[in-house]
Computed example of a mutant assay.
Amino acid sequence: MKTLHLYVVRHGKTYFNRYNKLQGWGNSPLMAEGIKDAQIAAQTLSNVDLKAAYSSDTTRAMDTAKIIIDGNKNKQHLQLITASNFREEFYGSFEGSNMDVAWTSAGASVGLKTYKEIVDAYGVDKTKDLLKAADPWHDAENSEEYWQRVNQGFQRILNNPILDDGDSVLLISHGNTLISLADRFGEGKIQVHERPLNGSIARMELSADGLTILTYNNQPVQN
Rank of each mutant, 00 (worst) to 15 (best):
S143C: 09
I179F: 00
D164P: 01
E187F: 09
D139G: 12
S168T: 08
D167A: 06
Q148M: 12
Q23H: 02
S84E: 14
R87G: 06
A83G: 12
H174Y: 09
M1H: 14
I172D: 02
D167R: 10
G92T: 09
K13L: 11
Y15F: 14
G166A: 08
L45P: 02
L30K: 01
T215D: 03
H77S: 15
D37L: 06
D37G: 07
D164K: 15
E95P: 02
D167E: 03
I69K: 00
S168G: 09
A53N: 12
R184D: 02
W25T: 12
I213L: 08
L171I: 11
K2F: 05
K73G: 02
G123F: 06
K13H: 13
E89K: 14
G12Y: 00
L181G: 04
A52E: 00
N151G: 11
L158P: 08
I40H: 09
G175Q: 04
G71Y: 03
K126C: 02
L131P: 00
A106T: 09
N176M: 12
E194L: 13
D139F: 13
V124Y: 01
E194D: 14
K66N: 12
Q39V: 10
Y122A: 11
R60I: 09
R87F: 00
Y15T: 15
S180I: 02
V124M: 11
E89W: 15
A42Q: 08
L170C: 08
R18D: 14
Q39S: 13
N20W: 09
P196A: 01
N142Q: 08
L214Y: 10
K66F: 07
G199R: 03
N20I: 11
Q191Y: 15
E141D: 01
S173N: 07
G199M: 07
E205M: 11
Q219E: 13
V169K: 01
N160E: 14
D135N: 01
E187W: 04
W147S: 04
A52P: 07
Y15K: 12
L131A: 01
P196Y: 02
D49N: 15
G12D: 03
P161S: 04
I118V: 05
N72D: 11
Q39A: 13
W137Y: 14
F16G: 07
L130P: 05
V101E: 15
E145P: 02
D57F: 11
V221N: 03
G12P: 06
R156D: 14
T127R: 05
K21C: 04
I69S: 02
G34S: 03
L206S: 04
V48Q: 03
S173I: 01
N47P: 06
A106E: 06
G166V: 10
A65Y: 10
I213P: 01
W137L: 15
E187H: 14
A53P: 11
G166H: 01
G24H: 00
D129L: 08
W103C: 05
F154Q: 04
I190S: 04
A61I: 07
L178D: 03
I213H: 01
L6P: 09
D120S: 14
E88V: 03
T177G: 06
I68N: 00
T104N: 13
G34H: 03
